[in-house]
Design a protein around this nucleic acid. Structure first.
Lengths: 114, 114
DNA sequence: TTTATGTTTTGCCCATTAACGAAACAACGA
DNA sequence: TCGTTGTTTCGTTAATGGGCAAAACATAAA
């Protein structure tokens, strides 16, 4: 139950839901997510830490950047995938989510790795 | 998005999740739910009102009692059913939920309508 | 080494919310 | 009618949680 509640609370915030949905299109570094949400870096960092605690995102470090992505399926954590699937089905055509995807195209095109 | 967030916030509380799962076995009056959760009537009433606002429960009045139940499928609100299905799949074997079901058997057997 | 950039941690403020008790409301029974 | 029972509303309190800025941390470039 505790693990379920962690996940449920994680998706009970609009910013975090937007993060998950935009990561569905591929990994992003924290600064790209910050730019998309237009929130302070510390705020976004906290959101990402909470999503990681709930096992809803994974990350890798590369140079100065930290790239976040949705987790790959893991035995014993099927309900994480079910949660993501629930989000996809419910929010696929949501106006906010679609606008975020559009905005992200711009952000992606300006991003260059060293 | 607003409707989705209402549902997401509704299931981000353990008491409310327990209510939904126990209603999956059939309708209950508010006093039975109160007895199961061991919370003050006013607290449970507020939880039920919030679940109703999110369209996650429905109710009917009969005499002095108010019976709550899960909603039947409605066109345009498929995601409510998807949410309930997500809960069922995730929490079917949860210890808390199973204990609640057991406790409810006692509560049901003591309940007599006028 | 110093500077710049990306990220997280810390500390604080403000809004939200879960909890309760008391009071109000509703419906039945004596 | 008057109590009794079931439920909700209201008012208050304590805990939670999202937001920011500033400081700390990490890594790469100058």
């Amino acid at each position: 139950m505790r693990e379920f509640m962690n996940v449920a609370k994680a998706v009970a915030d609009e910013s975090r839901v937007r993060i998950l949905m935009v990561l569905d299109a591929g990994e992003l570094c924290a600064c790209q997510i910050q730019e998309m949400l237009e929130l302070a870096p510390s705020t976004v960092s906290k959101h990402l830490a909470l999503l990681y605690q709930a096992r809803l995102v994974d990350y890798r470090k590369e140079g100065r950047w930290i790239f976040y992505r949705l987790p790959s399926p893991e035995p014993g954590w099927e309900f994480v995938q079910q949660t993501l699937e629930w989000l996809r089905q419910t929010l696929a055509w949501d106006a906010t989510i679609m606008a975020d995807r559009e905005k992200l195209k711009q952000i992606r095109s300006c991003f260059v790795q060293a």
